[in-house]
Design a protein around this nucleic acid. Structure first.
Length: 347
DNA sequence: GGCCTCTTGCGTGTTTCGTC
DNA sequence: GACGAAACACGCAAGAGGCC
């Protein structure tokens, strides 16, 4: 949508100076950042702060908002957190399945970073309450509110620094959509099905465990592996670096080691896609065609597409492959790290 | 203007819950 | 036990963004 805006010369000149100094790529970028900041402020103020911190009064400034985000997404003290047991196979296997090799992550989980944010929030809540488990609803509500703030901040920072829309915030819930909040909770975080099976990325990756208490309330705790991944340095959350990817090298290596030993379904998906890339199946259509032969026969074309897309996005985030734009088409290419992972994963 | 890719909102069938 | 309502689980496809 295009808007016609009348500005006093004094304001216009100041904006021009900021653009010329390189802080913004264009006047559009300046206005988008300004509007997003104002909308964020309005939304947060209208909701009050009861969902965030017990000792925070009213969010009245950018600095206060920053403090809240920092307090819940910065590295928690590892020694302050009591971990829980890793989920057992029977908490993960669907009726009729007997092998974790077939447990693919749902394709709509297309980023690891949103789960990292969720883990940070969970760990900080556990540390603050000095508990091993907390109520799932309490965690997910707070995670959604804070993840929205992280997303808004990330959008504004990325626009300022790179001058273009990057997708580092992909997967995090947006301020203006309950649907995206629901998606974040159900797909990236965790929940417990009625039959006791754990769903959601954090659960399927064994970074958290869930249990239903006698009062039927579900509780969530962080596993040892979840805590290890959680406290690893993150360029965005800990250093405010927005141009080196969403995970640190250490974080990427940990994730790969973890899935290799604990999450065979994710390893299988990675190995399947990387093997095909190595064989030269570099386009979306050729990948889909080949994956259809080796992935579950009951998956429709749309499901193959969803699963391929999610796997490719996570692989790219981990630097195991890259996407190269050729005009309007994209070529997938395995990286050196991808080849190394494949060598280890297929041994 | 049209095409391709990717993200994410929505539709639909199934299951669970509450009430009578 | 029957029924309707609500919640859940899964999967599809609309639409935004980028490019020619």
């Amino acid at each position: 949508m295009k808007l016609l805006l009348v500005l006093p010369n004094s304001i216009f000149n100041k904006i021009q100076q900021l653009i010329e100094s390189g802080k913004y790529a264009s006047s559009s970028d300046f206005f988008i950042a300004a509007v997003e900041n104002q909308l964020l402020l309005e939304t947060t103020l209208s909701k009050g702060t009861d969902v965030v911190l017990p000792d925070t009064d009213t969010i009245t400034s950018e600095k206060t908002r920053e403090d809240i985000v920092k307090r819940f997404v910065l590295k928690p003290g590892k020694e302050l957190i009591k971990t829980v047991a890793t989920p057992l196979p029977e908490q993960l296997l669907y009726p009729g399945s007997d092998s974790e090799n077939d447990l693919f992550l749902w394709g709509q989980i297309n980023r690891i970073f949103p789960m990292k944010v969720g883990l940070r929030i969970l760990a900080n809540l556990l540390a603050e309450k000095n508990e091993q488990y907390i109520e799932l609803d309490e965690f997910t509500e707070k995670a959604v509110e804070l993840a929205k703030l992280v997303r808004s901040r990330l959008m504004a920072e990325t626009l300022q620094i790179t001058g273009k829309k990057d997708s580092l915030w992909s997967g995090l819930p947006s301020e203006d959509s309950d649907k995206s909040a629901s998606r974040y909770k159900m797909q990236f975080l965790a929940y417990l099905r009625k039959d006791g099976i754990i769903e959601g990325g954090l659960g399927r990756l064994k970074f958290v465990n869930l249990k239903r208490e006698e009062n039927r309330k579900t509780h969530i705790g962080i596993t040892e592996k979840g805590l290890e991944f959680c406290v690893l340095e993150n360029p965005i959350l800990d250093a405010g670096v927005y141009n080196s990817g969403s995970l640190s090298e250490e974080g990427r290596q940990f994730y790969l080691r973890h899935i290799s030993s604990e999450v065979p379904g994710e390893t299988r998906a990675f190995v399947d896609v990387l093997s095909l890339l190595k064989e030269g199946k570099n386009s979306q259509s050729s990948l889909n065609r080949e994956l259809r032969k080796i992935w579950p026969k009951n998956w429709s074309g749309a499901v193959i597409n969803t699963q391929r897309n999610g796997t490719v996005s996570r692989l790219a985030e981990l630097s195991l492959m890259e996407k190269i734009k050729n005009g309007i088409e994209v070529e997938y290419r395995i990286s050196k790290t991808g080849i190394d992972f494949l060598a280890k994963g297929t041994k």
